[in-house]
């Protein structure tokens, strides 16, 4: 299976990089962007073929390494 993990900053955690990107967009003349939040995407190729087991495996990876849950949320998308 393939897994795509979206890691985003929790609400309330300041995101200076997102702010800087917002300012740059404004400087380029793009209007109406009220907030920018930056995150990251991690793609995994998994040997596991069972969706439930794959989700559990990736969840454990996120908890132990891929995300820091003090400041980050993660969401897992699985596909064959």
């Amino acid at each position: 299976m393939k897994a795509r993990i979206h890691i985003t900053l929790k609400t309330g955690v300041l995101d200076p990089q997102g702010k800087a990107i917002g300012h740059a967009l404004e400087g380029l003349g793009f209007e109406g962007v009220s907030e920018v939040r930056q995150g990251k995407v991690i793609d995994l190729d998994l040997a596991e073929t069972d969706e439930a087991r794959a989700r559990e495996q990736v969840r454990a990876m996120c908890e132990r390494l891929l995300a820091n849950t003090v400041i980050e949320n993660y969401a897992i998308d699985l596909s064959q």
């Binding site: 200076p16 800087a20 820091n68």
Partner: peptide, 16 residues
Amino acid sequence: CETGLLPGVLMRNASL
């Protein structure tokens, strides 16, 4: 902080 021996996390400097 990453091991959990100390609480919290060190984030990017506010000034970038």
